[in-house]
Write a protein that binds this DNA or RNA. Structure first.
Ligand code: FES
Ligand code: FES
Lengths: 162, 162
DNA sequence: AGACATGAAACTTTCATTGTTGCGTGATCG
DNA sequence: CGATCACGCAACAATGAAAGTTTCATGTCT
């Protein structure tokens, strides 16, 4: 089951760009998420258009957040990567002349659209900052040590500082 | 976006087996849904195991309902075809050592599982009979003629009677 | 000028679903 | 019985979209 990984990957990258480094190149990001720089650019181009990210060329260039994580919802990210189909099941597009088939498909699509609407509403209510913050809280709690230094240390697993 | 068409197709077939013919061969069904008989058997094998359908070999053999449509929910059908992944987006299975990535993926999966749970609950509350009945009602209304003969006529578009 | 980094287009790879072929088994008909 | 019909099952080929890759152009900093 090969799912669309862009949303998951983008969220990781966005948090990285807020918590670890203020700017990173496509190559660095590609190494981070085990893919390649062109895929990174393709994926992040949509976020640039929506003014979630800024990219700069040349020396010291790379990618950088255009606004704080609490101003970026999961829905924003989802739409920025092109609103890929959320569902794997649905009706086929080969129209026959059977009215029953059309009716069944229409009804099924309705249910899926309803589910999609609800899921996107949830997404609109969760900011990327929420994700990052929740993790830090939970991690600190697990450590039995509530100070933030410990939580932040968890981020230092991957050397990306220049 | 090539979705999984099995659920949609199976629903169509089930209604057909209740409203049009009491029994149909894989070849006939394949012609009906524009695919081929082996695909039909593969798809319907799961329904046989769940005792939704019965198949018989030899002359006059073929597929037949094992219980009435009102005793078959969308959820039953979905599970019978193997519970294929409902969603197209999700987290990848390539585990790195970044805790943030793991946390983001876990959170995303949680949201998806919640949505899946809700959708399956809806599915469990809709029977295949509901789908067929709703269609007949709606079709009759559209015809400006509320008698069932008119609605039933809509089913006769495809000659499958033997 | 040279090195760095993104932008964009074209091409290849990957992989799950679907489609296909072939053979075996059981059931009905004559 | 033998022939035909129809499913059961396994193995293989085709399809198509996402991911990966290559290549060249453009812009930026030293
Ligand atoms: S957040 Fe995972 S590498 Fe920085
Ligand atoms: S219901 Fe569509 S062909 Fe019978």
């Amino acid at each position: 089951m090969p799912r669309d990984l862009r949303l998951s990957r983008m969220l990781h990258v966005l948090i990285h760009l807020d918590r670890h480094v203020e700017r990173a190149t496509s190559d660095q990001i590609a190494g981070m998420i085990s893919t390649n720089p062109v895929v990174v650019r393709r994926m992040m181009a949509g976020l640039r258009k929506k003014e979630i990210l800024i990219s700069e060329k040349g020396h010291g260039g790379g990618w950088q957040l255009a606004r704080p994580l609490n101003a970026i919802s999961l829905r924003d990210v989802y739409q920025a990567i092109g609103s890929p189909p959320l569902f794997n099941i649905g009706s086929g597009a080969d129209p026959t002349d059977c009215l029953v088939e059309k009716a069944v498909d229409a009804r099924l699509d309705l249910a899926m659209q309803e589910a999609e609407r609800k899921l996107l509403k949830q997404f609109s209510e969760i900011s990327v900052e929420d994700l990052a913050h929740d993790f830090e809280q939970r991690f600190a709690a697990l450590q039995g040590d509530a100070d933030e230094a410990s939580a932040n240390a968890a981020f230092k697993h991957f050397r990306t500082d220049g």
